[in-house]
Design a protein around this nucleic acid. Structure first.
Lengths: 197, 197, 197, 197
DNA sequence: GATGAATGAGAGTTCATTCAT
DNA sequence: AATGAATGAACTCTCATTCAT
């Protein structure tokens, strides 16, 4: 059978684009590169996407969600089961962060690409800002929950704490992108200290 | 006057490249774009640079230094004059950071570009890592000095504190790149808190 | 009709390249020149060839064969039909050579180009050397057949005779390239003399 | 002393051009390449030559003469001293030919270049044709002398013999250009045979 | 006599996109 | 749904040549 279902090919293209945008960058990845990876040819691309730009948007939409959902799900689950404890939660979160999965470096590459393109494309800017807000809101919720449970007594308000945590996270991730050998495990101490006492 | 000195033109090109790489991105800036800005023609470029790539490296080298030196100079000056005080130092530093100068957004754009290209070019990777280390070392020195002067009593070691501060800084800067309207002034509270007691 | 089959366009390009490389030279023929001749645009070229260099190789491969085959075929045919006679064979061969066909001058131009490029490209060097050997071998066979039939009694061995004939041929052809008006018909006497008695 | 005499620089340029045109080819040798070799810069070139084309002409003029003169001088000397003998003369001539001097391969490269350019530049065409005629005339004289001295009894006239010898020579030289390892010493037998009896 | 900054035309090549099939 | 030939604009880079110094 020569033809896939359309959806299959489209999904393959998005998957390949995610990988290639993440490694080679958006600008340096040609439509052909993607299609080579997928085993399809030029024309197939334009059956599914209006343009390369549109593909970038699709990649963005899908991945932004995935990224968020992991953490949110973990939080809600723990709260539901009454096992939530801020320190161990943060530690688990950091473990996910510091573990090198196959897709994580792709994601950082894509994310950097998006940040850069955000100055050109309003849609990307909005998407990132939304994601950013979601993160901050999620952590705010987390910190509030922790305070409610008397696990922390922050001296600054939870919003600021959350914003800082996200910035810290992004700063670390970028650092690791440039130097994958860096050992950031000690940093966990930093996070712990943020909430100690 | 038709002919400049070589250095003049070269400097103009680097200046224009800094601006354009920062706004449009390296890949989307053509050699022609740069030369239009400078008021020279294509060939002039290759009198001064072997390739566009080499230009990127020059921009990187020059700007990395500039960026570092501002802060280091401020620190040394204050220590020399006996006016160094960690909280106000950090506040001044943040003021510089949070003030929108004309060149700062360019710099963030160029920096993002460099981070992205670091996976392709060893030289860029090394340069960023060096800069990163310099930053961390500088802040370590600053924290040590502050501790020495009994201005802070950090619970984690100064190295970790420094690494975190740099990450925090980078995280904020990127956030601001995506959303220039964001008000990060409240964040100063965060920094302050980091060192309070 | 806007779209050809690929093979059609590819063949047209090779044909045009043969003509232009032969007249203007490889270096002075631009990809655009070729495509103008063909009535296609630049991009079409790269659908069929990886580079201009590759095109040169294709032209070489194809033409080298054509050039050889004419003569070999003539020889085999005559032997098969029992009409082979060395003197008249050589005369026919020379007639082909000395007649100005439309494509012959192109070929000499291309050949010169290849000889020159042979110092840069191993593939060309090998190809010419192979062709050269084929020529020598063919003439050796021809001379052996002629000796076998008692048509000549060469005082030097057939290999040397063959090598010399090829050199003579090439020397003449080059002379004619520089001065197309030269009358080389008298030279036939020379060839005849080579085998007389 | 920073400045040479003009003549010195000019001569150096011609010498370097000869080498580079011979190895890399005229088209692939840039004016800069030549000046690098000489240790001068662009402007110096145009003090001495109107254009790159003119340089080619100068190289041609000078080298064409040198090439010819060697042989002519040898011939005249031997005749004057009464030591002229056709077979040994040809052998000496071939020894010069077959010996690999440093400059010979350059010369063949330049010569091929000139042949190719002859279709574009009337001056080159004329120069080569003149040289060609000179060669033929010289060999004609040589053969006539040999016949006069009863050293050969050619069955074809001396002109044809001379033309053939030149063609043979050129054919061999080109063969050696493509495959420098080829051993053409056996070919001497061929030349000898040409005149035997 | 020589420098080297600048010109500007033109080269080979890439690539997002279109479209007949 | 997919192919792949073709487009054409854009790109980086080369180079013969000019000219102020």
């Amino acid at each position: 059978m020569r033809y896939n279902t359309g959806e299959e090919t489209k999904a393959n293209i998005i998957q390949a684009a995610f990988k290639l945008f993440g490694t080679k960058g958006y600008g340096s990845t040609s439509v052909d590169d993607i299609l080579n990876e997928v085993g399809r040819t030029r024309g197939a691309f334009y059956t599914h996407f209006k343009s390369k730009e549109e593909l970038l948007m699709e990649v963005m939409r899908i991945r932004m969600e995935i990224h968020m959902d992991d953490l949110e799900h973990m939080f809600k689950e723990q709260v539901k089961q009454g096992t939530f404890e801020i320190k161990s939660f943060i530690q688990q979160f950091l473990k996910v962060l510091f573990e090198t999965t196959t897709t994580r470096p792709y994601w950082t590459g894509v994310y950097l690409e998006l940040i850069k393109q955000s100055s050109q494309y309003k849609e990307i800017q909005d998407c990132i800002n939304n994601a950013y807000d979601s993160w901050v809101n999620l952590f705010e919720k987390i910190f509030k929950k922790a305070k409610e449970l008397n696990q922390i007594k922050p001296k600054v308000n939870e919003k600021i704490l959350a914003t800082s945590l996200v910035a810290l996270y992004e700063g670390y991730e970028i650092h690791r992108y440039v130097n994958p050998n860096v050992n950031l495990c000690d940093q966990i101490l930093m996070y712990e200290w943020l909430f100690s006492e």
